[in-house]
């Protein structure tokens, strides 16, 4: 996939050029491109003067980061304890079935990525599914298909 990497400098300029900024920079890159492209990691290593191996370690250690491109919409199924008890597994099963992908995968048309995440901190509305930036609480099986249709 080809990207325009001009925006990277805008990200770098926001932070001091030290290792302390590494996670913040990677988060901004993740937000910008929905994943961490190789070129961006290489540039980050250079600009922040952090060895590429350390950048790679950090990129693969934390859940927030992904090294593969994601779909236009990321669907996150919360699997926090409250959601688990109130049927998160069933929602996962339904969404996987409906989208014909497993959690962690992206549909072939690159429209949706399905993820399971640990608690999103909206436990009182369990079970929760986050589509893009929008939180959906008390999700029922009958609502699942609507979630995926939602633009």
């Amino acid at each position: 996939m080809k990207h325009n990497f001009d925006n990277l400098n805008l990200i770098f300029d926001k932070y001091p050029k030290t290792q302390e900024s590494l996670i913040a920079v990677l988060q901004d890159i993740q937000k910008e491109y929905q994943y961490l492209p190789c070129e961006a990691l290489e540039q980050t290593s250079e600009v922040l003067d952090v060895p590429l191996s350390k950048v790679f370690s950090v990129s693969t250690f934390y859940n927030s980061f992904s090294l593969t491109a994601k779909g236009d919409k990321v669907i996150k199924i919360c699997t926090g304890t409250a959601c688990h008890i109130r049927g998160a597994k069933l929602l996962q099963d339904q969404l996987e079935n409906h989208l014909s992908i497993k959690a962690g995968e992206t549909t072939e048309d690159m429209k949706f990525t399905l993820e399971v995440v640990a608690c999103v901190g909206a436990c009182a509305m369990a079970p929760v599914v986050v589509v893009g930036e929008k939180y959906h609480g008390s999700v029922k099986v009958s609502k699942v298909k609507k979630l995926v249709k939602a633009k």
Partner: peptide, 24 residues
């Protein structure tokens, strides 16, 4: 300092490494 999704970073020494931009 924004965390990046690692439960183990609730552990103090891991959290401090994460604040410093390292693996937690």
């Amino acid at each position: 300092a924004r965390g990046a999704g690692a439960f183990v970073c609730g552990e103090s020494s891991a959290l401090m490494k994460s604040v410093a931009g390292e693996v937690g």
